[in-house]
């Protein structure tokens, strides 16, 4: 400020230049990367949409709109609604468990904070499939949980713990919980404790302080976390297959089957586009409700 009063014009243009330079340096690399390795590949993939599958897979380059008419099918709507339900339940539970966890981690003394945080992601440095199989070993008919319960005489025949929607939800939460906790932690950690103290000193109950101070200030973390759990849950196809016993499918299975099993890339691309569109709509709804809160 002081300098600009001395010599206005040159400094202003210098400031403009440095702003442009800043834009270039900060935005340039990332955006270039995303254009080349995200948007171009997606465009290539979605460019199959107006064509049709060849007799034995592959693509026949004759323009057709049939992929969009195939999309309007109650079968796919069923799958979408089912996935929506499962992914929503998984996200809500992950949030209810993840928020207090992240909150307490952020309050821990420095040393424990690191340990607690790393302990959240540590299980994920071993293989996903191996962890899923560990759940199967735990929950299956002859598995640990059932055999323990039977040894204790609490049940006389194995419970059906596996291969239902509940296990799919459990598996999804298990897979994505760190993606909820880490963004929440990042948001909660920077909260100024004085704000809460001020609120408490003004006589607010803890619940009120939470709802009117803590939660709104950490809302960005909540939204990010929910996004990171909901979206991959929606597109997961391994958990429904292994923990769901293949008895129900999610949108992820649908897309996988078109690309890999039916080798119908045009329709697979159409489904991908539809999924992206659906997710965007959901994000709008989520933002709308978040702002009302």
């Amino acid at each position: 400020m002081a300098r600009s009063t001395v010599s206005g014009a040159p400094v202003k243009s210098q400031a403009r230049r440095s702003r442009a330079l800043g834009r270039l340096v900060f935005l340039g690399p990332g955006l270039t990367y995303l254009i080349v390795l995200l948007l171009v590949p997606l465009a290539l993939l979605l460019s199959y949409i107006p064509f049709r599958r060849g007799r034995f897979g592959g693509i026949v380059y004759e323009l057709t709109g049939e992929n969009f008419t195939r999309l309007i099918d109650p079968l796919y709507l069923d799958v979408v609604l089912g996935s929506l339900k499962i992914a929503t339940i998984a996200t809500v539970i992950a949030l209810l468990v993840g928020y207090p966890t992240a909150y307490l981690i952020a309050q821990l003394p420095r040393k424990w904070k690191t340990i607690a945080l790393v302990a959240i992601v540590l299980p994920f440095w071993t293989n996903f499939l191996v962890r899923i199989y560990a759940w199967i070993i735990l929950l299956s008919g002859p598995g640990l949980v059932n055999s323990t319960l039977m040894d204790l005489g609490l049940i006389d025949k194995p419970l059906e713990l596996l291969y239902n929607q509940g296990t799919i939800i459990t598996g999804l939460i298990y897979s994505y919980l760190p993606l909820m906790v880490l963004p929440l932690y990042a948001a909660i950690e920077k909260l100024d404790p004085q704000l809460r103290e001020a609120s408490a000193n003004l006589g607010a109950r803890p619940a009120r302080t939470f709802l009117s101070v803590t939660l709104p200030l950490t809302l960005p973390g909540v939204i990010t976390g929910c996004l990171f759990v909901f979206v991959p849950s929606f597109g997961n196809f391994v958990v429904p297959e292994l923990l769901g016993g293949g008895r129900s499918i999610m949108v992820g299975n649908l897309i996988r089957d078109q690309f890999l099993k039916a080798r119908d890339w045009p329709f697979g691309a159409t489904l991908s586009l539809a999924l992206i569109a659906v997710l965007i709509v959901l994000l709008l709804l989520q933002a709308w409700s978040a702002r009302r809160a």
Partner: peptide, 8 residues
């Protein structure tokens, strides 16, 4: 979508 159509 626009990009896709252009590419197609």
């Amino acid at each position: 979508v626009g990009l896709a159509l252009a590419a197609s």
